[in-house]
Design a protein around this nucleic acid. Sequence first.
DNA 1: CCACGTTACTTTACGCTGTAAGGAGTTGCA
DNA 2: TGCAACTCCTTACAGCGTAAAGTAACGTGG
Lengths: 268, 268
Amino acid sequence: MVFAGQGDPRRSMTLLWRTPDSVATARTAPGPRPGLSVDVILDAAIAIADEHGMAGLSMRAVGERLGRTAMALYTYVPNKAELLDLMYDRIHAELATDHPTDGGWRAGLTAWAEDLWGFYLRHPWVLQVSQARPVLGPHEYAMLETVAGIMHGTGLPANARRRIISALFQFIRGTAQTVAEARQAASATGLSDEEWWYARSALLTEVAPDFAERFPMVSSMETEGAFQLDDETRPYLEQEAWETFRSGLTVLLDGIEAARRATPTDQR
Amino acid sequence: MVFAGQGDPRRSMTLLWRTPDSVATARTAPGPRPGLSVDVILDAAIAIADEHGMAGLSMRAVGERLGRTAMALYTYVPNKAELLDLMYDRIHAELATDHPTDGGWRAGLTAWAEDLWGFYLRHPWVLQVSQARPVLGPHEYAMLETVAGIMHGTGLPANARRRIISALFQFIRGTAQTVAEARQAASATGLSDEEWWYARSALLTEVAPDFAERFPMVSSMETEGAFQLDDETRPYLEQEAWETFRSGLTVLLDGIEAARRATPTDQR
DNA sequence: CCACGTTACTTTACGCTGTAAGGAGTTGCA
DNA sequence: TGCAACTCCTTACAGCGTAAAGTAACGTGG
């Protein structure tokens, strides 16, 4: 887990909210012309993170991709934590901000959640940026604006809306993270979920022959077919997480419905 | 995020499921008497992780706490990933396994969720162990057994129970992680949530004076008091996450209730 | 009783990380 | 034409997990 907001607050906020104008202003300063720019560095860093994950993102790697040394980056970006903040906010520009509202809040939230889920799976490194001390960049706020707009349609009071938005986030991030880690584990170990599980479960019966008696509820779930998945062609954990996402979302939406019913209309 | 299940599967499963007997057997092997044991190493490692977090947990640190070098540990534990697996399972022994069932599934799930929430806050490093490729140790299964038993009382079909259990996990882990990270950020930066937010929001209005027009929904939530918390004596993010936990849990439980109503009684 | 094989533990070493410090070379302006 | 400002480089440091090799302690077979 990586931290945010370590550097000079003013500098980092200026970088986050900078407009293209402030970049394009003709330079009259002395010294050699800058060969790089914050944007170029961000593109390179994001490309590396997408390809090799957070673990592959090092200052040396970013520099190398741009034909520079690691230290050259420090002219443009105060440090790695700041670079991550900027990457984090910029990548959120990818999210849709115009979910159709005519289908009602339920359809809106579903579309938003699915968009976010896909986004996290395309850029799993985003899940590793800490949520404490949020980045507070324009694109992160744009995403919050989107979901706040949809939630407005529920008619729930403002603080209930805030809490539900947070709960949705936590849930979506968690399930997406499981998929991301499963993929990473598969490619890192060279073992698919199935191969891994096959080897482990064989060892489990060997090392805990009394499993069924020790854990009757878990065993009964197993015999009742709780671990048989709808789509056997997809990697096990991935499919499991997807089903968790789908039905967990349904459960949450049903819960919101219940909260709406419990709220007097004049408060909505 | 740290990975699990890298080493020799047989050795790691044997270590996980080992019984006190197999440890206490009198040794007749040649060579110097072992000065350490897996259990002693686990105690030391867990103590370090509790005190200094995952970042403070290094093989050198564990060795030093036991008056040895880092390399001495490798006689007992194959590598750091395995050590983490063992720590992960052992710490789960702390969780209660006997939640009262007479209050019904709703009371049972609430008690279980609160227990788990407190557990994660006492041992936040647990949240950094990847959920892909689970550890499959006895205490992790004991926890699963507990919640599976409570969920059994809902009468929902087995695969719905599995999915809901997963969803609960993701949600609880996510909210707990936010609190853990907020605490870590506060102690790492020396800035409380409030100080941090005060400085940032001042900069935000400075750098984005048109905030209210650009993000009307977010702003309206703000003016409606969505960010005013119930308990102002606790650190802001911590309190916010706690409220998210409480009301998110309620929403989820209401959603389970709805799923129960939607399931024909003969399928329950 | 003593050498031998096994075991516990240490020392050294390697490649990796972020970034501080200092230096070289390029540029615009007084 | 110098000078200050600026970009970028080299070098260096402490810390990480762990491979490899060496040392010392120990139980046992000859």
